[in-house]
Design a binder for these strands. Sequence first.
DNA 1: TATGAAGAAATCACGTGGCG
DNA 2: CGCCACGTGATTTCTTCATA
Length: 415
Amino acid sequence: MFSQDNSRWEILIPGATNSHKGIRNPNKKSKPKGSELRRENLFNGAPGVRIANAPVTERSKDLRTAEQKAAIIPWAQRIVKQYPYQTHTPETGTNPSIYISPLAPSIPPAPSVGPALQATIKPTVAYQYSNMIGEFLTRLEQLSATTTDPIALGPGTSLSRMAQSSSVPPSAPSSSTPVISASTSNSTAPSDPTSITVDSSTVELSSVTPTADVSMHDTDGDNANMDSPTRTLKMAHGKLITFRECDIPDPPAVSYAKSIEELPRVWDDNSPDWNGTSPLSINNTPIPLVYWPTVYKYWKGTQWKGVKKTWFDWKILVRAMSGMSMEDFWVHFSAPDKFGQLHPLKYTPLLARLAAERKVADEKLADLARHELTTEQLTYRKGAQLHVMTKPAMIAACYRRLKGIDVDDEGDDDK
DNA sequence: TATGAAGAAATCACGTGGCG
DNA sequence: CGCCACGTGATTTCTTCATA
């Protein structure tokens, strides 16, 4: 990246460009943020006025331990030795929208992408090395699966989560997501904590975010790979896909910022818009975006954490596009430029507009709920205490749930 | 069965860095 | 310099599990 200009490496010096870290420069003047403006509006303060006696807010800190910091240099040296820097030579592939780094001769082929899919795949360094790490983690879990002590895995591991789930009775109350419950039907391993089936009666399909019917069970086999548990994903028209964790590629670094119209085509195979492709394939089967939480949430470590925000944005966009032609969509989601000419909103402003519209709608519904429902109906329990909901979005969701309005919106969020 | 604790999920707000 | 895409932390809400 910086081969033409070594001095550009200097911008990578820690703290040099992260203005939110380190000591604040009192001389630096910047445009007031939206939150500052709102505060000034709320408290009738002149610009720059701060709330009296406001506690000093700590700035972002480097919370890494000394051991973690010390480990960085050897890690970096090892990576540099293993993957020496090479000058980038752009390749002329068949699909110009996909760029595969020449640095990674051993990386697996890019996720299958249909010809119509214009989303940009962006392999990163993390993507290249995450395969190594992923293999290591997979192996760890395979080894862990052979032990009868789930505690040894620690509370954060997926297998220990399965073990925890195994104590849930099949009739346990649930949200609309598939409930993974205990199965003791496996006669060969009755106490196996990884043997899980799904209470299919709780699975509800919806038009925007259908929930996968998924089951998970051990398979018999001789080697460690065959011993790893499998999961079966039920897609549209009863199509079943069975796979192991090692079959799941890392979440593709895909962006629809430049191709929002493509989202409905890769979102849901129950939808007439589905075009049979997806940036994620498992065992050569394209996996619609709507199933990604099911694929990644219970497996693949913390990878879902990195995907969920993006996935949530996609969900919002698909929901906004459903029931509306793209022409109408762009008419609605346009904004005038300085000459008064209307232009379709860009990705971030579009999401901001959708959030704002959602907020207004939720506040209206929340007002309605406060009039129609009792306080008791708008509470939730945390520990022994009952709390009254305060967020309009949550009150609106509660109202919809109670009234059976637009369940599609609220019952699908894998809670 | 009730309760406390912990953690997951949804959402919001804001910072960073690239780009024109 | 402003806009944009994207990532991350914080808060609120909700669910699950262990224990008495």
